[in-house]
Design a protein around this nucleic acid. Structure first.
Length: 198
DNA sequence: CTGGGGATCGAG
DNA sequence: TCGATCCCCAGG
């Protein structure tokens, strides 16, 4: 189990299809400090470089920080915010197109004791329900920026084993994004309780 | 609700 | 070089 990896071509379709038909319900796996952790992706957000005011690469503007977004689909983009948290994104689309999917919540599947230790928290529902929390729980840091999720033995993705029903919602924490503030580009697994916000 | 915390990037 | 701002979270 957990050996049926997502492959390069899985990341190259329309970003919204990749989000709901490939990534939602698939498994994010990390092997950090000798510890395997696995979580099912229950919540994510789509960011589109060319037009999206909430996207780091709005207007395809490339900077040192967002450069990974311009890599080909399957690349990891990890960035640091608010002085203490990391956020993990899966880059999608072909090289040169700066689209990415922010992973917002997971349902813990394996390595739960390690997650509890890293998070200094015993409550299952609080381990991975937020983009900063899940990075902490799985040991994801900026060391993993640019990791090739199709090849890495540190951070990778495994195909989902069923087709979850998805629900579209507005994205979180982007009040500055004007007309893109309320677009329903956040997707969750219907009726799953491992979600960051109602 | 509040504020900590540090990297980032564009303005000057 | 500086400083406003940031795809958040824990604690009260």
């Amino acid at each position: 189990m957990y050996d049926s990896r997502l492959k390069k071509s899985d990341f190259l379709g329309n970003p919204f299809n990749v989000a709901t038909d490939v990534l939602l319900g698939s498994y994010l796996c990390s092997y950090v400090d000798g510890q395997l952790c696995v979580g099912k992706i229950t919540e994510l957000e789509v960011y589109i470089g060319a037009e999206d005011k909430a996207c780091h690469a709005y207007l395809n503007k490339k900077t040192v920080r967002n450069a990974p977004m311009f890599e080909a689909g399957g690349c990891a983009y990890v960035f640091f915010v608010y002085g203490m948290y990391n956020q993990f994104n899966v880059v999608v689309s072909p090289q040169g197109v700066a689209d990415a999917i922010l992973i917002r919540s997971l349902e813990p599947v394996y390595g739960i004791d390690i997650m509890k230790e890293r998070r200094k928290c015993d409550k299952l529902a609080n381990l991975t329900t937020g983009p900063g929390k899940l990075c902490q729980a799985l040991g994801i840091s900026r060391d993993h920026n640019y990791v090739d999720l199709c090849e890495s033995n540190v951070l990778w993705l495994v195909t989902r084993d069923y087709t979850p029903q998805s629900v579209a919602l507005p994205r979180v924490g982007i009040d500055y994004a004007e007309e893109y503030k309320d677009v329903p580009w956040r997707f969750i697994i219907k009726d799953n309780k491992f979600i960051s916000k109602k």
